[in-house]
Simulated assay, not measured.
Amino acid sequence: MGIFSRFGDIINANLTALLDRAEDPAKMIRMMIQEMEETLIEVRTTSARVIADRKELERRMDYLRQESENWEGKARLALSKNREDLARAALAEKSAIEENLQIAGKELKAIEEQLEVLHEEIAQLQQKLDDAKAKQKSLVVREQTARSRMDIRRSSNRDKLEEAFNKFEAYERKMDDLEAQVESYDLGRTGSLMDEFSELERNDKVEQALADLKERMNADSGSKN
Rank of each mutant, 00 (worst) to 15 (best):
L19V: 09
E84F: 04
E56P: 00
M36N: 03
E112D: 12
K94Q: 00
T16N: 06
I122H: 05
Q102M: 15
Q144D: 11
K128N: 11
M32G: 05
R65V: 05
I103F: 06
Q102S: 15
N100A: 03
L79P: 00
E116P: 01
Q34N: 03
S95Y: 03
S68N: 03
T45E: 00
V141C: 11
R65A: 08
M61I: 09
T16F: 08
A90T: 03
M31S: 13
R54E: 09
I33F: 13
N157C: 09
Y63K: 04
A110L: 07
K133A: 02
E121R: 13
R54D: 04
K27Y: 14
A104S: 09
Q102R: 15
Q66W: 04
A90N: 04
A146S: 05
A26R: 09
Q34Y: 01
M32V: 15
Q114M: 12
R65G: 04
L125D: 06
L91E: 06
T46V: 05
I122G: 04
A110M: 12
S80R: 02
T39A: 07
E37V: 05
D53M: 10
L161K: 15
N70Y: 09
R65T: 08
A90W: 02
E35R: 02
V43T: 01
N157S: 13
A89N: 08
Q126F: 04
M32Q: 12
R153Q: 03
R158D: 12
V43N: 00
E38D: 08
T145C: 08
I29D: 06
R54W: 04
A22N: 06
D130Q: 03
S148C: 08
K55C: 07
E38Q: 15
A89M: 15
A92P: 00
R60V: 05
E38P: 00
K128E: 06
V117D: 03
T45S: 00
L19E: 05
I111V: 03
L57A: 15
E38K: 12
I33S: 08
K109I: 10
T39R: 07
R59D: 07
N82Y: 13
Q102H: 14
M32H: 09
L118E: 12
E116I: 12
A22H: 07
R149S: 07
L139F: 14
K55Y: 12
S155D: 06
R21F: 06
L118S: 13
K133M: 06
M28F: 01
D24R: 15
M31R: 11
T45A: 09
S95D: 14
K74Q: 05
E58L: 10
I152N: 02
I33Q: 11
A104T: 04
K81F: 08
I33K: 09
E69Q: 12
D62K: 07
L108K: 13
